[in-house]
Nucleic acid binder design. Structure first.
Length: 465
DNA sequence: GTTGAGCGTT
């Protein structure tokens, strides 16, 4: 006996009626079709007044007490698209950047369990139901061309990704799973929850920062480099909080600090990466763009993701939005951003790199391709990274003191600043962790959407060195 | 033209 149940995304919305199945359950796909990103339902228990979750099993939502009743059900979203209310008081954000919607970035998704015969075209046909696809790959044996039974996809919109990951997929007669690739799942979270706080003053203590930022969300870690460098890193438990703060200016202890996204250390081992010292804070090194070759975007079939290794396309750098329409990818010399603040910023970023690079960073973990939304609709948005081989390298490859300005931007986001090496697992901070995939020690992070059969835990510890 | 847990030639 099929019926309709009332569903709203948020309290106050107009209810939408969704059809149930013959067995009385509501398909998750039915829900997510109308409420993209929704991964479940809840309702208010009339007796206790508290919210109750609806049971979800095998993609089906089960009616409470075998009856949906007439009540209204609320959508549940993966990580509460919580809109932070700045709650401004005396100290409030000064600038409100155009905030490119504090959404999370898409990542490549691995598709497991593909039929041997499924082609990339098949995948594209299937997955495009969730949204625009930027990339589709089926991994094949180079010789025989035979599929290996898995592939990768990448969506343009994070909502599509969420929707896609919230269910299983029947593709050409087989159930397939879509997950976040192992090489990335840690990064996503870690990166998104750490922000760079620039223009710090010397009288700001870690405790000051922790206290100040606590009003936006749980602060998991605060790092202030010693000696004083005028910047700090603050990590939040909730990535959304970190994201939402990016680009804002805040006043702390009477000083205006700037918050931006933290970026990982370049993965390039010999490629200079972020120039170190940048003596004098002057000249705009021309960061040669060596990634153009990769941006062959086609509409069909597979293409190579164009973000190059280790580069974090744009990790929210509103400061540079004033960049007078110069070609983004080509050079990012400081020349045309003649703002003191920005220069200082760049200098700080370079310093940040220098300071933190000596500690266990992302590098050794083999973090690659974290391009974020570096590519949207086939347009390269990333910044020149200045990694080795860039045309017109000023500082030569590798050495500290290279053309610091050439690297795109952003500070270094380390894992929690612990002494080098892998020994430390998160240094006690909640949720702090480092090392996934290979050198997993203990750590049982509880991230990623449900139904992800964890397979990382039993992975043989191979280590990286 | 076989296989069915996994993690990406560039």
């Amino acid at each position: 006996m099929s019926q309709y149940i009332k569903v709203v995304a948020e309290d106050g919305d107009e209810p939408l009626e969704l059809p149930t199945e013959e067995d009385g359950t509501l398909l998750l796909t039915t829900l997510s079709a109308q409420f993209p990103g929704s991964c479940g339902l809840k309702y208010r228990n009339p007796d206790t007044g508290t919210m109750r979750g609806i049971r979800l099993s095998d993609g089906r939502l089960y009616p409470p007490d075998n009856d949906w009743g007439k009540q209204v059900f609320f959508c549940v979203f993966p990580k509460g698209e919580g809109k932070r209310e700045p709650t401004v008081t005396v100290e409030h954000p000064i600038v409100k950047p155009p905030k490119s919607s504090s959404r999370q970035k898409c990542s490549d998704l691995i598709v497991l369990g593909l039929p041997w015969k499924s082609t990339e075209e098949d995948l594209r046909n299937y997955f495009s139901q969730f949204g625009e696809l930027l990339m589709v790959q089926v991994k094949k044996d180079p010789k025989t061309g035979q599929s290996k039974g898995f592939g990768f996809v990448r969506f343009a919109e994070y909502e599509s990704q969420l929707k896609c990951m919230s269910q299983r997929h029947m593709i050409d007669g087989r159930w397939c799973d879509v997950r976040i690739p192992n090489s990335k799942e840690g990064a996503q979270h870690m990166m998104n929850r750490k922000v760079f706080v620039g223009r710090c003053t010397e009288d700001m203590t870690a405790e000051d920062l922790r206290q100040y930022f606590a009003k936006f969300g749980e602060v998991v870690d605060v790092f202030i480099p010693k000696p004083f460098r005028a910047f700090a890193f603050v990590s939040f438990a909730d990535p959304d909080v970190a994201q939402s703060l990016c680009g804002e200016d805040h006043i702390i202890k009477g000083a205006s600090v700037h918050i931006s996204g933290a970026a990982p250390k370049s993965n390039e081992k010999h490629g200079g990466g972020y120039g170190g010292g940048m003596g004098g804070g002057g000249g705009g090194g021309m960061g040669g763009d060596r990634r153009l070759g990769g941006s062959n975007h086609s509409h069909l079939g597979s293409y190579t993701p164009s973000y190059s290794q280790g580069s974090w396309g744009h990790v929210a750098r509103p400061g540079s939005s004033s960049n007078p329409g110069s070609s983004y990818g080509n050079n990012l010399g400081l020349g045309n951003l003649g703002l003191g603040a920005l220069q200082l910023n760049h200098a700080m970023l370079a310093a940040a790199q220098a300071v933190l690079s000596g500690q266990g960073g992302w590098g050794p973990l083999g973090l690659t391709n974290q391009g974020g939304a570096g590519m949207q609709g086939g347009v390269v948005q990333g910044h020149a990274q200045g990694g080795g081989g860039g045309t017109g390298q000023v500082g030569g490859a590798g050495g500290p003191g290279g053309s610091g300005a050439s690297n795109g931007d952003n500070p270094v986001a380390n894992t929690t600043p612990a002494p080098a090496g892998f020994g430390s697992v998160g240094n006690g901070s909640t949720g702090g962790f480092l090392g996934w995939g290979g050198t997993q020690a203990t750590e049982t992070t509880t991230h990623s959407p449900s139904q992800m059969a964890s397979w990382g835990s039993t992975k043989a510890p191979t280590g990286w060195n």
